[in-house]
């Protein structure tokens, strides 16, 4: 079984979740827990870096669907960055790019958050 891993850090004061491995219906709960923990602690400006993510199924996208409103309600956003084409295609097929900030790299997300503040 291939693993999924999340690492948490900050970049210029913004929370960053680094995703690694494969995100499916089995591993989506780990992402959910990490996001819930941030929301609970009122950490609302969240960057999710997909650089290490090889694969995503709709259960992974579902986590972002379930919590984006909560984050926006407390004045923040979830910005998604560094996706490979394979992963981006799944987000694109389901229409995410019009409703989520999907950026090429993490620095662009940081700049965007700074501008929005």
């Amino acid at each position: 079984m291939k693993s999924f891993k999340i690492e948490q850090r900050t970049n210029r004061g913004f929370e960053v979740l680094d995703l690694h491995g494969e995100l499916d219906a089995h591993t989506a709960s780990e992402l959910e827990e990490a996001l819930l923990k941030l929301i609970k602690n009122k950490k609302a400006n969240i960057i999710v870096n997909f650089n290490g993510l090889d694969y995503i199924a709709s259960a992974g996208l579902g986590v972002f669907m379930a919590y984006i409103e909560d984050v926006r309600e407390i004045g923040g956003d979830i910005k998604l960055t560094n996706m490979n084409n394979k992963v981006y295609n799944v987000f694109d097929l389901l229409g995410f790019p019009t409703l989520y900030d999907i950026l090429e790299d993490e620095n662009m997300a940081v700049q965007k958050f700074l501008k929005e503040q």
């Binding site: 996208l61 579902g62 669907m65 379930a66 409103e69 909560d70 389901l94 995410f96 409703l99």
Partner: peptide, 11 residues
Amino acid sequence: LKERIKNKKRG
């Protein structure tokens, strides 16, 4: 998608 996000629905 917009409707689902609004209602915090997934799947």
